[in-house]
């Protein structure tokens, strides 16, 4: 009897056991390990040595590159995140339009998101080359002399942002499915009331998809801080360290300079920054994110209340 009861309650846990094991071994394990190592000086080829908060102190007081890389990553996130979301939303709106061959466009917009980051970096390296790149060639047709994208430190960050925006497809798809989910009745009612197309977008579409916007905002903030592949392969952090992102800085400390403990500390600082930013976004979300279910429930409550009073 007891055993039967045990199995009944335990069965669901058995189903999720593979995931739990994976999570413990490959996520929580390394996470805790890296937290511990962040208090050590660990040159990889020799044994770790405990140095307390030494790594953190060095980072904030002695290492100029730490601050510089952090600023570069913040700058990147500040430009990339909104830009990426606007482009994704715009494309999503385009592919929800009832035009012929929309499936073709949908595929075209999404394909870049399927290509591996390495290939994207190499392709953009060619596109952006100042001597034989196609981008500057196209600009020259318009009579514009294109900047030396990957050579001029003033333009390199823009070049990286441009190349990252190439992978906008996934976010577009998430917006797309959510927009498709909005009941057509609402739009019909609105157009009967004489609402213009732009009015419909700002008063119906946008509020209805705010939960998705929240999701995309958070995931893209996180991924923009972790951008490594692109800068490693496209610019190598250059020119003149203008694209030496925080992720690359951490990676180099770990695997180029073999300062595993220091890099762990770098990663934890990044973790805390991301955590704070995410918490901030969540805090603000109650002010601008609109959940349909919540609205219905609160509406229902009001009605009941009203009914009692009457």
């Amino acid at each position: 009897m007891n055993r039967k009861k045990f199995f009944r309650t335990a069965t669901p846990y058995f189903f999720i056991l593979p995931w739990v094991i994976g999570f413990l071994v490959f996520t929580i394990g390394p996470l805790i390990f890296s937290l511990i190592m962040s208090f050590f000086d660990w040159p990889l080829t020799a044994d770790p040595k405990f140095i307390g908060l030494g790594n953190y102190i060095e980072m904030f007081t002695e290492d100029d590159q730490f601050r510089k890389s952090l600023v570069i990553s913040l700058k990147y996130a500040a430009i990339f995140v909104p830009l990426n979301m606007i482009i994704a939303l715009f494309l999503a709106m385009l592919i929800t339009q009832p035009v012929r061959g929309v499936k073709v466009y949908r595929t075209i917009f999404y394909i870049p998101a399927v290509i591996s980051g390495v290939a994207v970096s190499i392709i953009w390296g060619w596109i952006l080359n100042s001597d034989y790149g196609i981008l500057n060639y196209l600009l020259s047709l318009l009579g514009i002399e294109g900047p030396r994208w990957l050579v001029d430190p003033a333009w390199a960050l823009m070049a990286v942002i441009l190349a990252s925006a190439f992978g906008v497809g996934t976010m577009m798809l998430i917006f797309y499915t959510d927009i498709k989910n909005i009941s057509i009745d609402i739009y019909e009612a609105a157009s009967l009331d004489g609402a213009s197309v732009s009015k419909q977008f700002f008063s119906i579409t946008l509020p209805m998809i705010t939960p998705t916007i929240l999701f995309n905002l958070i995931t893209s903030i996180i991924s923009s801080f972790q951008q490594v592949t692109l800068v490693m392969l496209l610019t190598g952090g250059g020119p003149l360290n203008s694209t030496y992102f925080y992720g690359l800085y951490t990676y180099n400390n770990a695997f180029k300079h073999h300062k595993m403990g220091y890099a762990s500390a770098n990663a934890w600082v990044m973790f805390i920054i991301i955590l704070l930013l995410t918490a901030l976004v969540f805090r603000s979300s109650s002010a601008w994110v609109f959940y349909e279910t919540e609205a219905k429930n609160s509406g229902a409550k009001k009605k009941r209340k009203g009914g009692k009073e009457a």
Partner: peptide, 22 residues
């Protein structure tokens, strides 16, 4: 929802940290 998103943060951040074991 909050927990899920926090989970996302955890998972994604670890990607930068991982690389040990054996």
């Amino acid at each position: 929802k909050r927990n899920v998103a926090l989970g996302c943060v955890l998972v994604l951040t670890t990607a930068a940290v991982a690389g040990c074991g054996g």
